[in-house]
Design a protein around this nucleic acid. Structure first.
Ligand SMILES: [Mn+2]
Ligand SMILES: [Mn+2]
Ligand SMILES: [Zn+2]
Ligand SMILES: [Zn+2]
Lengths: 150, 150
DNA sequence: CTGTTTGTTCGCACAAGTTGCAGATTGGCG
DNA sequence: CGCCAATCTGCAACTTGTGCGAACAAACAG
């Protein structure tokens, strides 16, 4: 995703209007590496702009995704995440707390694939499932407590 | 997933009961490589057993998944898929018609990952997005019709 | 600065997919 | 056969996200 200032220009150039709601979301997303859900962004937005609607958050996120400024990331379960990082990258998810982190996978686009008869133009999206450092620390000896922290 | 007969034994051994509904689903899943949704299985089940409930289909699928006989596959959007193939494999999805096919990815477990600080025991699940042979054929010259066949 | 236009916001209803619940049913067993 | 625990079913509820229309407000011209 580009900077809030660049996005402002880009929106104006396309005939879109610049609203305080959009500017707030540009700011909340700028450099945001947490892969937030729409709901999470809505909650943060509410504290700066009480009255903003969840509908508007979804709307703006979808607009940004359609413009290619944002990637919609699905991690297999739970709500969709939004990612201002448009690099060619992949994700690792903590199955305990849900944290999502960027990972860069060497050779992801040159994988040897067996069984794709006829399928073409395939690009991989890789999700690694594991346990983050924090969660590993919080259950050092007994790795199977059903703890649901955070 | 094991054969219907083996599953029947396994269920009995665990104190679970063998019902006609479960047996039907064992059969519908046996060797099923289509990665069906719960709804799709429900529809097929209904033709053999009118009156079976969608709730029971979900229940049985979840039970099988919990026993490790079935994998729940998420392809990023749309309903979840269920997969009796428990091999170490991955998936390619046709973004036009939704078909899901098994693929075997060489070296998927030895990928060089950059950025996983602290995450451990990560296992990848890879989804390739592309276009299946049938869909490619049906739109041979113009690759951008919004056709929604099947 | 004021008025007009047109895109935007908001609230609510709705949709899809899945689960919780409780009463009716039935498989396994003595 | 008769019991009982497991199961099935129907429905309500839930989660995530979208459609819609009335109210609102950026952008711009005068
Ligand atoms: Mn990312
Ligand atoms: Mn599969
Ligand atoms: Zn964690
Ligand atoms: Zn297809």
């Amino acid at each position: 995703m580009r900077t809030p200032a660049e996005l402002t220009d880009a929106f104006r150039k396309q005939g879109f209007k610049i609203t305080p709601q959009r500017q707030l979301l540009f700011r909340l997303l700028d450099g945001n590496a947490t892969h937030p859900t729409a709901e999470a962004l809505y909650n943060r937005a509410c504290s700066e702009m009480p009255g903003i609607s969840l509908r508007t958050v979804y709307q703006t996120l979808n607009d940004l995704a359609a413009m290619g400024e944002l990637r919609h990331v699905s991690v297999g379960c739970g709500p969709g995440r939004f990612d201002p990082n448009t690099d060619d990258h992949h994700h690792v998810v903590c199955d305990r707390c849900g944290t999502v982190r960027d990972v860069y996978v060497d050779g992801a686009n040159q994988l040897a694939i067996e069984g794709l008869d006829g399928f073409d133009a395939v690009t991989p999206s890789i999700v690694f499932h594991g346990e983050c450092a924090d969660c590993a620390l919080s259950v050092p000896t007994n790795p199977n407590s059903p703890k649901e922290h955070q």
